[in-house]
Design a protein around this nucleic acid. Sequence first.
DNA 1: CCATATTGGTAAGCTACACTGACCATTATA
DNA 2: TATAATGGTCAGTGTAGCTTACCAATATGG
Lengths: 158, 158
Amino acid sequence: MPDASKVNDALQAGMTLGSMLRRMYRALSENVYGRLADTGFPDIRPMHSSVLRHLTADGARVTTLAAQAEITKQSMSAIVEDLIQHGYLESRPDPSDGRARLVTLTPHGQALQATLTRLSSEAEKVLAENIGEQKYAQLRALLMEWTQAENERERAGK
Amino acid sequence: MPDASKVNDALQAGMTLGSMLRRMYRALSENVYGRLADTGFPDIRPMHSSVLRHLTADGARVTTLAAQAEITKQSMSAIVEDLIQHGYLESRPDPSDGRARLVTLTPHGQALQATLTRLSSEAEKVLAENIGEQKYAQLRALLMEWTQAENERERAGK
DNA sequence: CCATATTGGTAAGCTACACTGACCATTATA
DNA sequence: TATAATGGTCAGTGTAGCTTACCAATATGG
């Protein structure tokens, strides 16, 4: 059983779960995007990862990407447009549907995606060193479990 | 030892630690602020918590609050100003320093703070039910440990 | 004790990232 | 085949931050 009074103290001291999650997220994010800028991708910001995270070699439609990233298609459209301007993506009409367009990575975009994955992994490694491999593994497992359960709940409640 | 290949798969699938942290943060945040609006505080948004989280009965200066929330004093100043307009805070000259002002909670602000703490605690309870008390306790402990260590690192590296 | 540096705070303007509402063209369906 | 649903765009809005520049009051070192 978790020590409820201790949690309460923490809440009083402003250490909500949310604030800590947010802070850890920011730490990772700043690490990754700071280094990304130093690695030849100075025009890429966190928002761009919502595309890069999900885009596979097959390409995808803006609508699909938007759904995966849980943002509106207008927002996703703007992000994609920006990445096209910078040469990371290209988009061509989808042969199987006259309304749709297929978004794919250019070689430059593939390099970016690879670098982003690498830097994310390195950032996690730093965190693992700070709290210990064991606890890092625990944290990751916990989050993955929750995320997957959350996906279930959404599919169900929809 | 954490299963590195599994982590790598997850990274490929876009499940970075960061994206999961962010998502859980959003879930909590939407829960709390959605309900807060239904509880008679429709004008309070997540940003406001950066003040409310740290402000004690003694009051505090904008500069102090800004440092605690890790935002600029201009940003904090705007947030405080907004909360004053809505009757949650008041600010008076600090008798001990002619430059400074002391920000304190009005009774209305105290009610808000209490409600916010309650809702945060309830939101965490929901999460605890979803992943299990044990794992919730683990997650919280992990995050608190990292947060405190991070505080250390900052104090040291500064 | 006074010149200079530091500190608390404000003002103005900008950027990043997301949203809503309205709309068009194409495809699916009753 | 008329209507609904889907993929996408355009224009406008809002939120939460930031930077640069500045003022007034306090601290500090010679």
